[in-house]
């Protein structure tokens, strides 16, 4: 049986807007294809895991306070995560998880939280806490080789700058900065995004991109994923796209 190993970091602290649902979706889609899916969790004061032994590392989003709280702990994991990423482990990062992998996050009071610095971007929150990017969002991504319009819900104060390879272009909503054209960050083994929802629940192509990557990364032959009946998911997304882009 095929196997995917996942490390879900700070699941108890970074779980805003149903982000843990992303793991449920991955597990569901693996189960339907008889792919075994092991999800381990890591949180503050857990034993240091062997990050490179995982196919996927997942970090969700949290409020500023939680983010401050975990940043110190996260810095202890820096070398392990960096090594895993360089060895091809997939990083799936939502909101706070996305921000913390950049150079730094400066909060509304001007406090700077050091990021892991894996990527070049940095995030600055506006001084006014009321200035937030909130609402439904539609993003067109080409990561699967085709145009895919993904939908989700964004809610972030932080404005992320200097993203060289975004996840997609904004069709409705804000994205990395208020009213910006770009959303998220992408490399072949990294998806970092502001999309909650949970993001994977309505965008099966993205789930399958991640699953497919994880399955194939150490495999000599290409493993193709069995097609699933995604009619509910597609309809769900279409209803939102029609509403946003009409």
């Amino acid at each position: 049986m095929k196997l995917i190993k996942i490390l879900h970091m700070y699941a108890d602290m970074l779980d805003l807007y149903g982000d843990s649902g992303n793991m449920e979706v991955i597990k569901y889609r693996c189960k339907m294809r008889e792919i075994e899916c092991v999800v381990d969790t890591y949180s503050i004061d857990s034993d240091m895991p062997d990050f490179s032994s995982y196919d996927l590392i997942y970090i969700g989003g949290g409020a500023d306070l939680e983010q401050q709280h975990i940043s110190e702990d996260l810095s202890k994991c820096r070398e392990g995560i960096k090594k895993a990423y360089e060895n091809g482990t997939f990083l799936f990062l939502i909101c706070g998880g996305y921000q913390l992998m950049g150079k730094y996050y400066r909060d509304a009071d001007g406090n700077e939280i050091k990021g892991l610095g894996l990527f070049d971007y940095y995030t600055v929150a506006p001084e006014s806490r009321r200035m937030r990017c909130i609402g439904n969002i539609a993003v067109r991504t080409k990561i699967t080789g085709k145009n895919v319009d993904v939908v989700g819900f964004e809610n972030h104060g932080g404005q992320t700058h200097d993203v060289k390879t975004p996840f997609g272009e904004v069709r409705y909503g804000n994205g990395n900065c208020s009213k910006s054209q770009q959303e998220g960050y992408f490399e072949k083994n990294v998806i970092a995004t502001y999309l909650h929802g949970p993001m994977l629940s309505k965008n099966p192509e993205i789930s399958d991109y991640i699953i497919s990557y994880c399955l194939n990364r150490n495999s000599s032959e290409t493993i193709r994923l069995k097609k699933l009946d995604d009619s509910l998911e597609i309809k769900c997304r279409q209803v939102m796209l029609d509403r946003l882009l009409k």
């Binding site: 569901y28 189960k31 629940s201 009946d229 509910l232 998911e233 309809k235 769900c236 209803v239």
Partner: peptide
């Protein structure tokens, strides 16, 4: 209506028993 349908489906409930009527 579709969001809650997807949610229930992913919890492992048989999708063929879900009827969406907005």
């Amino acid at each position: 209506a579709y969001d809650i349908a997807v949610r229930i489906k992913c919890s492992g409930y048989d999708a063929s028993k879900i009827v969406v009527v907005p």
